[in-house]
Nucleic acid binder design. Sequence first.
DNA 1: TCATATT
Length: 437
Amino acid sequence: MAEAPKPRKASEDSVKLFVGQVPKHMTEAQLLAMFKEFALVEEVNIIKDKATRASRGCCFVICPSRQEADKAVNACHNKRTLPGASSPLQVKYADGELERLEHKLFVGMLPKNVSEAEVSSLFSKHGTIKDLQILRGSQQTSKGCAFLKYETKEQALAALEAINGKHKMEGSSVPLVVKWADTEKERQARKAQKAQSQASNLPSADSGQHPSLFGALPLSYVPPYNGYGYQAPGAYGLMQYRMPPMQSQAAFHNMIPSVNQGNAMRAIAPDLARAVAPRNYAVPSASYVGSAYPALPGLQYPMAYHGGIMSHQPLSGSPGSRPPTMMTSNSPTTSGAGASSGGQVEGPPGANLFIYHIPQEFGDHELAHAFQEFGRVLSAKVFVDKATGASKCFGFVSYDSPASAQSAISMMNGCQLGGKKLKVQLKRDNNKQNKPY
DNA sequence: TCATATT
């Protein structure tokens, strides 16, 4: 029972949790004390805005084990609301944690006729297989790849090193590819990228011709995704367009050895591999980009609010008076207005609208513009799909007075804008119980 | 069809 207190070091067993709905004024010490009521916690790190160092309203919590992490999740997620927050704590495994803990492997270049049993017998030499699944299409036909979980990371690593690029299955001329399975985030990055290349309206005679290649090849051609938002597409999607099929395949095969090397490195020293891999792949792809793509499609123009919103002040008596603060964005040019970092500005109760059927092409700015004639718009936000950047066609507009909101509802609800009729109603009330002054 | 966020 006497357990020596472990040094506070993020070990391999430690689990990182992401926590949302953290009031921005809370300190790491306060959060640590709070979470310690429910689980062993090694560390709390508030996530801060890079530029301003202000809290972004979320943090990481490091627990010494999965068991402790689960305790924190079960006790807190959606269960407690911190004073000052508008909704309950969001507590979940940080991006990539689950994948890391599950030590899940991807196996590629499997001959299509190989069965689970055959894969299993090969891989069980290196450990106990907990889960194995060959990916199959509609007719149960193999996609030539599989996911596989061992009981321990050591076993997975042993299999990866022994088999990747070295073992050919009977009747196959190419060796198996074994790599760590992509994280959810990497998958999303790839999805977004795919959507992006398909959205670009190039003549695409070559698009979508090599689905099996996508399934079977090691997927880390796509540079590991750093941070979030939209990044330059990796090699994949663009090369599909840039190169004739034969050349394209040759290039892929040529890249396999270096990819394998990258994966081996990741197994040994993940950070090093991550630092190195993107360089290798980004360089060749960049030249393709430069030759044919004038600019990356799909990027929203940078936040640009001022003109439309602030110049139009129907309720403002004197033009010389300080304009209403438009705090939707963190525009660096907003001077001394105390723009809140990150959050949407909400108006008083009854002054906030929920709007549906916003035309697809509308961004925040267009939304604000469409609603500015009814009052002072404090903020306007169109929601976009995180992966594709496409509008979800709904959003919020906040005024500084309920009368403006009512006026907007009566004028704009049911109004045909673009193809569809707008639905404009009061935003659902988020019970803000405690507002300190 | 009613809110984000991942050092």
